[in-house]
Nucleic acid binder design. Sequence first.
DNA 1: CACCATACTAGGGTTTACCCTGACTTTTAA
DNA 2: TTAAAAGTCAGGGTAAACCCTAGTATGGTG
Lengths: 211, 211
Amino acid sequence: MIKVAICDDHTMVLRGIETMLEDSDIITICATYNFGKQLIAEIDKNLPNVLLLDINLPDGNGIELCKELTKKHPELAIIGLSNYSETGFIKNMLRNGAKGYLLKNTDKQELILAITTVHKGETYLPRNIQDILLNESIGNPSQITFIPKLTRRETEVLHLVAKEHTNLEIADLLFISTKTVESHRNNLIQKLGVRNTAGLIRVALEKGLLG
Amino acid sequence: MIKVAICDDHTMVLRGIETMLEDSDIITICATYNFGKQLIAEIDKNLPNVLLLDINLPDGNGIELCKELTKKHPELAIIGLSNYSETGFIKNMLRNGAKGYLLKNTDKQELILAITTVHKGETYLPRNIQDILLNESIGNPSQITFIPKLTRRETEVLHLVAKEHTNLEIADLLFISTKTVESHRNNLIQKLGVRNTAGLIRVALEKGLLG
DNA sequence: CACCATACTAGGGTTTACCCTGACTTTTAA
DNA sequence: TTAAAAGTCAGGGTAAACCCTAGTATGGTG
């Protein structure tokens, strides 16, 4: 029997996965967690073979959590769960020790296949995500779902811009020069592929960069 | 028996809701849909009493879908589903005919309560969302809850600003002077109670003024 | 019809944002 | 340890946004 634990703050997803796995005779659910903190605190008590881990947990970064867990438990196979087929996330996740990645629209067959695959020590990615990554590596970035990776400073500046602060105010708040703020703002405009502040805020909200 | 239909592109959520409702003796699931198009095409065949509708569907705007459905089937009670407790979304949803709103971390008890409540013709909102909306209206009754009425020109200008056009471009598009565009923009900033373009776009999106 | 409120229009003047280039230090990844 | 990326700052501009004020339609109402 493969022991599986699930960590997802959405009760509906949790129950959905439980249902999909409950009548399997090779998989058993040994624990479910609603928060990252709970997972960290309790996973040692009953270590699973496979962990289904939501990336977008409310209390902290799922990717950091993944890194921490694989360091502590190298034998634990983690499958990332997310709504987004954002390749940056996926690659980051895999780079930080995840053995697989599933979208939340996964069906029962694929879920079981993913769990058994990573349990054998192999990596599992859905077909469509394989395709996206393949296209990317060939040099065909999928523009549609592209979410640029922002640096720490860029994120800070972006949030302050969204709060209607001027460059001067932002400079004072971050203890840097207005010219530096302008640089970050320029980079943001470049990265998000927009022309001005209006586009910056709109796209940032669309891509979920502002929560 | 209350007939319930579900529309959500995430199989896991779909299965989760099904599981939560399957052993209820007052609720029966009459249909499930994965896409908005499918819902529109097939809902007439077997009209439910209550529809659980994901707002963030991949093929189109859940809010528009909600508007369309309540217009066509006024007796249908729609409950919006989303990951986000963004008040702009929620208010927009309710304004467009939804009878309730649930986050995807809802448990079984609340799900059933929500369904039975909207089936009685009442509105259902989770406690925490009620609190958020209440706090908003207490904190700043005249500003935050209030959705300003924009004039024809103001709406035109707002949309063009959101599309990253400059005042000069907008002036050319509307056959008016850049100074006039600036005036409209100024009025928009006053009406929405913001300081600059960043706030204008953010608040306009929050209040659902940009669809 | 005359009136008033509102929308639409627009001017001058000031502030802020945007663009390009370049340079230096620090941090991170290979 | 070296290369790459991030963060820092500067100058010198141009363009755009923002602020205040005010005249001109326009549509509804007494």
